[in-house]
Simulated scan of single mutants.
Amino acid sequence: MHREVTTVAELRRVVGEPDHYVANKVKDRLSAVQRDWLAHSPLGFVATTDAQGRVDVSPKGDPAGFVHVIDDRTIAIPDRPGNKRVDGYLNVLQRPQVGSLFVIPGRGDTLRINGPARILADADYFDAMAVKGRRPLLALEVAVEEVFFHCSKAFLRSDAWKPETWNPTALPSVAQIAKALRYDWADAELEERYCEENIRRALY
């Protein structure tokens, strides 16, 4: 039997009410410790929606500190060469509101930043986001409407940062997955295309 939750009242009956601190921890500007978090984070995720409400989440990563803090109310996330699908950017052109989450490997807590975004092809801070002499192709500039730290329970439950729990070979390689989806490519061609060495050559 399914028991669907369809109202706020039902939801609150199941999960209860947050305590005062949790309910009021959301701010509209970065604090010093949140700026410091971004300076040490090498990885983030950006969620967007299109005009029909369909959601996309895209990972963003670079050396730690890749997010450029313009001021306490604005950040910029660089974009590097990729597969050219630009799903998230197409969504931002339709609905500018984005949600983002930034992680630090080994830490269970995360930093969440939400707000309206715009896509820039150049700005006076692009040089500051260069890696290996390569400026970003684009930047997603986000106005901070909501910023807050999220607790570590999900990472603690999953043991995500414990190497002894990792088993990446339990699944097929990227090349093998591509082969399952594209029957017209030879195995050797796929292995060459998706080997880490080749992917790293095209990172910037």
Rank of each mutant, 00 (worst) to 15 (best):
L90T: 15
R85T: 12
W185S: 13
R157S: 14
W37P: 01
E145F: 14
N167A: 06
A121G: 06
P63N: 15
N167F: 08
N91L: 06
I104V: 09
A186Q: 12
L93D: 00
E145N: 07
R107P: 00
R85Y: 14
V15A: 10
D62K: 00
P168A: 09
E4M: 07
D62M: 03
H20G: 06
P96L: 04
G82E: 15
F45R: 00
T169S: 14
T7V: 08
L156E: 07
A39R: 14
R85D: 01
A32K: 09
L111Y: 03
L156S: 06
D28H: 13
G106T: 07
Q97C: 12
A23Y: 05
T110L: 01
N167T: 00
E189H: 07
P116R: 11
R12V: 14
L30G: 06
V14A: 11
I75N: 02
R95V: 04
Q94A: 08
L203M: 14
V131K: 00
L171N: 11
G99V: 05
L171D: 13
A123K: 12
A170D: 10
E145V: 09
D50P: 08
A39P: 04
D28K: 10
P63F: 08
T110A: 09
D50G: 04
V55T: 08
F126L: 06
T74F: 05
R135G: 11
S158R: 10
I77L: 04
K179E: 10
A188Y: 02
N83L: 07
